[in-house]
Design a protein around this nucleic acid. Sequence first.
DNA 1: CCCGGAACCTGAAGGC
DNA 2: TGCCTTCAGGTTCCGG
Length: 271
Amino acid sequence: MPELPEVETIKNELAPHIVGRTIVGIDIFWDRIVRQPSVQDLKAGIAGQKIEGVGRRGKYLLLELSGGETLVIHLKLTGSLWRELPPEGDRFVRATIHLDNGTKIYFRDPRKFGKMWLITDAAIATGKMGPEPLEPDFSAKVLKTRLRRHRIPIKAALLDQGILAGVGNLYADEALFSAGIHPMRPADSLSQKELKRLHKAIIGVLVAGIGNKGASVENYYRPDGSKGKAHTEFKVARHGGEPCPNCGTPIEYTKVRGRGTYFCPKCQPAG
DNA sequence: CCCGGAACCTGAAGGC
DNA sequence: TGCCTTCAGGTTCCGG
């Protein structure tokens, strides 16, 4: 489940190995991983391009290339990018990028949901996205503006990339717990105090996640094949039935708009 | 505007 | 042991 902290970690740990290098070619083992252009055009178009920078927008990884195009990568649920594979190889590698110094980037993805694009305008892939929660201009006031037009459950609003970029299912639960807000609360119903708490909580859980190099639930790995440990500090996400670390009440599990949702019924009152 | 559900995929886990 | 069902979750799309 790469969310913002996981993609940010991959970006940070990949960049020193690939920025300044030239792509000599790419192998595609699962054609449908390529969204745009065609597999043939991507193979032809990517060769010879230098990687000038690595960026991130929400959960999208952006490799900025010398020809003015961007290789946009979305890892979806189970994707990861590796620099080294175990000696026996890996049957889940869907694509391999070859660099001019012999470095390889393996796009590993057991469930084949991950996607890539070679495009001039990254927004074609990312669509309309909300603000970046870790940019300095993301204030409580911005959060309020983004939420006030929506009556949907706050949990669903946090997952909507058009409202706010980068937050996924696990960090949304952690942020709502940290702010003491019930996941079913209508997004436009939060008080000023709650908005301030939520704003602080979102930044807090994302920064902590990055500090812990991401959360290794599902199939998330860092580019060197190691795992992150952010999940070991989750308070509610994936802790159904366990006592709330604040009050001891069992953590409840429910569905909000089809998404598994964990919360403390006492610390996050519905009223 | 809002929501539910299906689709995309496959490994893991649980039931019998 | 093994078959079957369910679940997981980012995103898009379709229908009501």
